[in-house]
Simulated assay, not measured.
Amino acid sequence: MDSDRARGILLGLACGDALGRPVEFSSATQIEAEHGQLAEMVGYGTWNQPAGTITDDTEQALCIARSLVDHQGFDPADIAARFVAWFDSDPFDIGRMTIRSLSRLKHGAAWDEAGQTVWKQSPEGQNAGNGSVMRCPPLVIPYADTRERLAEVSRQSSQITHADPRCTYGCAVLNLTVAGLLEDVDAPLQAALKDVSSDAPEELVSSLGPLARGDSPATLNTSGYVIHSLQTAMHDALTASTAEDAIITAVNRGGETDTIGAITGAVAGARFGASQLPDRWLSTIEATTELDSLATELRGAPSSSCLV
């Protein structure tokens, strides 16, 4: 596995997250009016944080990466416990389904029950957010060469807080695509969809199918709905000529800028490598050193040592 591209997954995720954080919920028109084209890490704005500040996207990805390193594999109960500890730290940004699921975990629910209960109690339109796809890419690095297991742990990582099949299989498709990029698979998104198409929700497969064939949808939405976030992020990451262009394009669309930026960054990072991410971004993000170290440690962990 190429070290530069493995590191690019985690560092790209953080870059997209931090670039998008100050303009989250703004429209493309509002971003253009205030920033022209937002291409630099800026401070304050949404959430009133300094330039380069990461959000729940990267913070939860860090929880997963740390657990993978400490346990030499995927331990969903440990990841759930780390999410709860992070929740107790009073983060400034956290999604509604994540709050509800982590509250249940905090009060004793099992890792594979809390998200399931929240999903069943949530009406359509509020039950398939992007809160699990944004954090799942660290799983790719130790499991890239075991695609069936990667799909399984990706779905399970989502289930902790987001149990809707559009979310669980969304994580699987995203991570299989990223793994395909690391492994130089021809048409990585197409291969990912083929791997899950017999079980994945039709809406997920049909929304990403045109991208896999090289077509661009007429409209790309930037809402927090997992289908919209994945479609837009995958489009921008897989069609851009550079990692920087991919992330800038995604963020300047407005809407869920931090999360769509994070997903785009993870895919573009795997495609182009960490060395192609701007130093002016990386130097502003406090978590860069730890993310870089975790990516290196995850790359060195043989998949045979990973938990069943």
Rank of each mutant, 00 (worst) to 15 (best):
D56V: 13
L282A: 06
S198W: 11
A128Y: 10
Y143N: 05
S157V: 03
P137N: 09
S305Y: 05
L204F: 09
G20Q: 00
L38Q: 08
A212R: 01
A200D: 11
A33S: 13
S216T: 15
A200Y: 09
A151R: 05
G45E: 05
L174Q: 14
G12Q: 07
C171E: 08
G12M: 09
A295E: 03
P188Y: 04
R271M: 08
H107E: 12
A192D: 10
Y143K: 03
T288Y: 04
A212F: 01
K120P: 06
D258N: 15
D57Y: 09
S154A: 12
A233P: 01
A18I: 11
S154E: 00
E24H: 11
R104E: 13
L193H: 07
E244G: 09
P137W: 04
L139S: 00
A274K: 02
V153Q: 02
R155G: 04
G214F: 10
S122V: 06
A212M: 06
A85I: 08
A163W: 11
T289C: 02
Q116W: 15
T219P: 03
S158E: 02
E244H: 15
N175I: 01
A33K: 14
Q231S: 13
L282W: 07
S3R: 10
N252K: 13
D245F: 12
H235G: 02
S158K: 05
G273W: 00
S122M: 13
P50S: 13
D245T: 14
E34D: 11
A6V: 01
L277G: 00
D236L: 06
W119A: 09
N252M: 14
A28G: 11
T53H: 02
P22S: 07
L220C: 02
R104K: 15
V308G: 06
A295Y: 01
T289P: 04
P210K: 06
D90S: 13
R104M: 15
A295C: 09
Y143R: 01
C167K: 00
A6D: 03
A179F: 02
M234E: 03
A233G: 13
C167W: 06
G20D: 03
R166S: 08
R299K: 12
F272L: 10
M234N: 02
Q49I: 05
L62F: 11
G180I: 04
A128T: 12
L230R: 01
I248M: 00
A191Y: 03
I260Q: 08
E202S: 12
F272C: 09
T29D: 15
T29Q: 14
Q30N: 12
A65V: 08
M234L: 13
A163C: 12
F74V: 01
A233C: 04
I94M: 15
T117W: 14
S223P: 00
